[in-house]
Design a protein around this nucleic acid. Structure first.
Lengths: 217, 217
DNA sequence: GTCTATAGGTTGATAGAC
DNA sequence: GTCTATCAACCTATAGAC
């Protein structure tokens, strides 16, 4: 035991994290949070000013360490990482090694297509996206940049879906899938996504360029 | 032009579909909807009783035709469809052939891990999930059922992410990816997911069973 | 079927005592 | 830093005239 007493600010962050995951960012009221955290309503405004800035703080405190670990894992894979190593470096720091209480909340955030949340992620993800983009580029040099970017989006989607729906995966599959075995899920996801990245892209000429499209009709 | 006049009920459904996509189900108020639809507030309660049942109606009117088309495409692929044909039969009816205004809203619904939405999808998806599960089973007989189900979830996640984030894909990729070319996106997604499904699963013995895990330490 | 009016409750945020 | 009290705005849902 390191500390059993937690200060008000942290209690608010913890409670908000839990409730945001359960009910969503907008559906959770400040009163829900203060009740869960057992603090006064005004404390939220004192520590975080507005609800939006509380949301930013809840996401921000978790995303930074994850991204740091991502870059560490990518660097540890050496100058010529395999596709599997790149995918694992992106996925495992959150899915396998991320602390449990943040996972459903991160899933919610990744899966909510709100501009406000998008800005938060964009701010924190800039360095990571750059490094991983380059890594994929050297590992799969034959891939067009459009195809590479689409596949990054597909990867993010699979990961987000696992995070956000894992609480019903058990019921959904009648116990066949166990989302609590995080190493297992991570291994399966890495296998799937890496294979997707390795898929051969049809030659450019097979897909009609603008000229062809305009020339027709 | 077939009909320029639309009845109140449809106007409410159309407006709700648009606003649910933009702001989310909970963040959209009935007043937002009646303002957008240019109808009276009480009309919503007259036609749909409650907000929850309106959400159900908005999703329900779109999901049925999509699922019908999915089963048609799967049947049209014959008794021994390829993995690509199965994936395309699941993905294309929504992503490529679904009518445009429903796409962002469907993305939002698929990506919101709320039990209420899950129940709606479960109700409508039962027959489809069964057929597609069987199709994958015969196309990829060596896959364990757990791995097959996880991959179905990964597939759904990639598709949902494309639907829900396509409005920022342009900005995100600085114009390299064009989400408005729906045939192109669909082809890329089918390629990616099919390759993921074809990935070889490591033999059961390579992954420690419970006995091994318990036996250790 | 469509309207006005309103009930009854919740929300985010703040002012000001301690 | 933490509290009580409160504001103004907003919400869903309904009752009842037309």
């Amino acid at each position: 035991m390191t500390e059993t007493v937690v200060d008000t600010k942290t209690r608010i962050l913890d409670a908000a994290e839990k409730l945001f995951a359960d009910k969503g960012f907008y559906a959770t009221s400040l009163r829900d949070i203060t009740a869960e955290a057992d603090v006064n309503l005004a404390a939220v405004n004192y520590h975080f000013q507005t609800k939006d800035s509380l949301i930013d703080a809840v996401i921000g405190r978790r995303i930074a360490p994850v991204n740091r670990l991502r870059l560490e894992m990518l660097a540890a894979a050496g100058p010529h990482p395999s596709v599997e190593q790149i995918v694992a470096a992106f996925v495992a720091p959150l899915l396998e090694r991320g602390i449990s209480p943040m996972l459903p909340m991160m899933g919610r955030a990744l899966a909510s297509p709100d501009l406000f949340l998008f800005r938060i992620f964009k701010k924190h993800l800039a360095a990571v996206a750059d490094q991983f983009g380059k890594a994929f580029e050297t590992a799969l040099p034959s891939l067009s940049s459009a195809e590479r970017m689409w596949r990054l989006l597909f990867m993010a989607g699979s990961m987000a879906h696992v995070l956000s729906w894992s609480h019903v995966v058990g019921e959904m599959t009648e116990g066949v899938c166990d989302p609590t075995d995080r190493e297992d899920v991570t291994a399966r996801l890495v296998r799937f996504v890496a294979a997707g990245f390795r898929a051969t892209e049809p030659p450019r000429s097979a897909q009609p360029a603008d000229a062809v499209r305009l020339g027709a009709a």
